[in-house]
Design a protein around this nucleic acid. Structure first.
Lengths: 229, 229
DNA sequence: AGATATTTTTGAACATGTTCGAAAATATTT
DNA sequence: AAATATTTTCGAACATGTTCAAAAATATCT
């Protein structure tokens, strides 16, 4: 049986850790320090978290849960793609803002094998939830793309958002203004791009793009097809 | 005075380390193991290298030196942009191939503060050498772009190449075929893009693109200008 | 309630990156 | 060559993430 007290201890350790992470950064925080701040022995932290990095993962999951309802709420109001995308992306910025630097401990890992990588199997559930938001936005706004591109659009939008967040995490301009300007400008370009993508004039580009996306996201059988053309 | 013997010890440690890195990966290799394989005490490794990661940096520098002459040689023969770019990028793949996985220890760091990041000040010299190659390629091929985009082209090509290499490092398809197909297709697209970029038809896009690049690469004063438009 | 099982906590021990003072080897000066 | 200075090597010690067996606390069963 899982007691309330146990859950509370876990939370106390997580909160203590986040405080110290925010103060001193992920690297310089020590597990003994975190445990002490939570009023437990060092070993206890490992009863609740597999590793130091697992604490960051728990933070990630907690943030995601918080965003889930916020984003859903924000999205309800709108029918246009741009405000829908803004609802998703801006909410992320807002929720992550107090822990922006800590996100570096997450987003720094490009390696899909690394548990904290945005591409790992450990973060798959979160990633899929996120992609589902973009899928919902696309559907809700009634976006029509060539059928060979449609399945990729949510993932592309997710990648776009990951890129923005990555840029933001390491953006050292005051108040991360640089990211905000970039966000504004690129979102407009994304919107224009999506509008243009429907144009039959661009048929030859559609095929190119679809092939490219198949190489990136497809299985190895798809690769055989593409490596010949 | 720097003796030949000292230089030889350093090389022995570096080589031993690379062997073990290749066998077991960066993480699982221990400094004691490396030192033992090089026939020295653990502390000696730290006389020659500041840290375990500094060994990877030394590998990076050694590879860069090797590529410098190879690329220069390859580039001499050509006057067209596509083969010039291929000369740079393919040489990188070839030189890095035996240590592809080790590159993960480098490219995994998005944080520009991290010494091993491709964006750090520690790797600035290498990065600038690389960008100079792309600059030379662009000049040598006589590429003409709108003047507000010209200064960014070498950096954009460098980014493109970094993206390819990153994809390659974590590409688990047999023989990294996926990357090779991607390389083929995207290089063609880059070439088409550059040809099209010269077209006066696209004047409005030029301005957009230049603004965007200024936000990314410019100083904060440039930001002020852009945040108003 | 007392016995037994389960969950939680502890702190010592371990592995590994790293530091550091002293010893050894080598170079320079007298 | 002896004395001195410099470079190189050593290995013990340290910090920190992590493991683990035992103890303590708590829950469940009889």
């Amino acid at each position: 049986m899982k007691t309330r007290k146990s859950e509370e201890t876990r939370t106390r350790i997580l909160d203590a850790a986040l405080n110290i992470f925010r103060e001193r950064g992920f690297e310089r925080a020590t597990m003994r320090e975190i445990a002490a701040a939570a009023g437990v022995a060092a070993g206890a932290a490992y009863y609740y978290f597999e590793s130091k990095e697992a604490i960051v993962m728990a933070f990630y999951e907690r943030s995601q849960a918080e965003m889930l309802s916020l984003i859903a709420e924000q999205m309800g109001k709108n029918k246009l793609l741009e405000p829908l995308l803004r609802a998703i992306i801006s909410t992320k910025f807002e929720v992550f803002a107090p822990n922006r630097k800590l996100l570096g401990a997450l987003s720094a890992h490009a390696d899909p094998e690394h548990p904290l990588s945005p591409f790992s199997k450990e973060t798959a559930a979160i990633r899929e939830q996120d992609i589902a938001f973009f899928e919902k936005a696309v559907t809700q706004a009634g976006i029509k793309l060539p059928s060979n591109l449609t399945p990729y659009l949510p993932r592309l939008l997710w990648m776009y958002q990951m890129g923005l967040i990555l840029f933001w995490v390491y953006d050292r301009s005051a108040g991360q203004r640089r990211t905000m300007v970039l966000y504004d400008k690129t979102l407009k370009m994304v919107m224009t791009g999506i509008k243009l993508a429907g144009n039959p004039f661009l048929r030859p580009l559609h095929k190119l793009a679809a092939e490219l996306l198949e190489v990136i996201y497809g299985d190895e059988a798809a690769l055989d097809r593409q490596s010949k053309s």
